[in-house]
Design a protein around this nucleic acid. Sequence first.
DNA 1: GCTCAGGCAGGCT
DNA 2: AGCCTGCCTGAG
Length: 270
Amino acid sequence: MEYHYKTGCLDLAQTLESGQCFRWRRCEDGSYVGISGRYTLNVRQAPDGVIMEADSDEAIRYWLSYFDSETDYEAVIRQFEADETLRLASSENRGIRILRQEPFETLISFIISQNNNIPRITGIIGRLCESFGEKISGEYGGMWSFPDAETLASLTADDLAPLRAGFRVRYILDAANKVASGQVRLPEIYGMSYDEGKAYLKTIVGVGDKVADCVLLFAYHKTEAFPSDVWIKRVVAEYYSDGLPECMGDYKGIAQQYLFEYFRKRTPVE
DNA sequence: GCTCAGGCAGGCT
DNA sequence: AGCCTGCCTGAG
């Protein structure tokens, strides 16, 4: 079934190729195909929003939440106008959304992301799903679910060697073991404050400030999180050495995405 | 060969 | 609390 989601602030290319998610595929016709949990989606850009094609009403509701339809991005962007740099960064990237992704997948994905580049991250995650996920029958070709914690916890480092994830394998296994054993209960983080959630996630080996912030932002939608990577550190050093502007409020994470894209585009990759 | 990629752990002061 | 250094892997 098809659903026309009308909205001003959702650009699929800006959002799905922003580095917060790693499993969307762009099709020949410009639409995107993705999977989260057991839900699949084909989505394409429209002049006044996006058109979603999914299996059920339930799936559509899931994807609307995934694309963060509840947040008023227009209002957030107006709030950001008080800061000139942020105003420019926002207006150029107004189509970026902060997705509400599945927590375990997001956790493992950002553990893999450390000291790594996006093509390799995408490759490792793809191999992880094809090796240990479940094949979901869909009309858009091969789709694999993200493996659950129990499945990953039953594996050894040797089993994961073909992923070529390097030193991150022991972090993946530690995360899977702690989640599968109940030592880390991911759903509880929804109810935690930003600080509590961060401390909780950091009990996992291989999760530091940056990975924890990415998970809190891109899975739990804790927009106070401000993931500080090498790019953003440069931006902060240059523009915000005296501190982040007041107008970011509790939306530092949204500001971070606008700034990240704005400055990344301006840095030549050679 | 070298460096770098959206960091982190472990060890040191 | 803040500084090093090594780290799997693959592309340039």
